[in-house]
Design a protein around this nucleic acid. Structure first.
Lengths: 119, 119
DNA sequence: ATAACCTTACCAGCGACGTGTCAGGGTAGC
DNA sequence: GCTACCCTGACACGTCGCTGGTAAGGTTAT
């Protein structure tokens, strides 16, 4: 099986050559190179390009988003920090008495439905 | 402890009121409302806003990125699809003999280091 | 009741992203 | 050696996200 050149790969995957280079630049699909530096697209890359396209379409995602997801995989510290932040919602900030904290937390969840005396 | 208005909260957290509304719109920090519809920022929200700011600064992340991370949490199917795609790199696309596939995969990893004869 | 704040909903500028295209130079096959 | 392709780098243009500002109208506290 002969690897395809970038133009051929573009034709069969629905991307443009320009976009294939861009996708590679984002670190999403990088093609091996020939000795002369030509990108060579084998079945692995073609498959990856097609499924990538499908991913974008079916989930309404942008290339940049996938790039960010990649970054999350490469920087677990970032992923951890985000997880921590998202899960930290109901955590008390250690600088006020529990009573006040808890009462406000309750307010927070009830206020949308409750009567604010001043009204 | 009295919840702060949006302007006060902005002052103490370093955001602008405009941005606090935007952050809420992204679903990252939503403040409970008074009966009249005023946003009320309590310690929980203030803490969240401060840690969010810290998160952005220390990791060089944009609000939109955090918004996307939130989307990943809300749409596990998306997260799964991305995980699958990222992990699917070394999978053979069931339409060619293993030998060819494997040899090309090896090419893929060695070509960057190989001969470069023409140089 | 007046001043100062809040609300939502727009418009606007700036920069980033996505994509095309071109220029200058190398490579491959006929 | 021609022709058609590849490479990188750069410019260009439309769209969109981020951020500020403003307008029209309601609320709160003095």
């Amino acid at each position: 099986m002969t690897p395809l050149t970038i133009h051929e790969a573009a034709t069969t995957t629905g991307w443009s050559p320009r976009m294939l280079r861009y996708v590679e630049q984002l670190g999403l699909v990088d093609a091996p190179r020939s000795a002369a530096g030509y990108r060579l697209y084998g079945p692995a890359q073609l498959q990856r390009l097609r499924t990538l396209r499908e991913l974008l379409e079916t989930h309404g995602v942008e290339l940049g988003d996938v790039g960010f997801a990649l970054r999350l995989r490469k920087e677990p510290e970032l992923a951890d920090a985000l997880d921590t932040w998202f899960d930290a919602a109901p955590r008390k900030p250690h600088d006020l008495p529990d009573a006040d904290w808890l009462s406000f937390e309750q307010d927070k969840h009830q206020s949308l439905l409750s009567t604010r005396s001043t009204a």
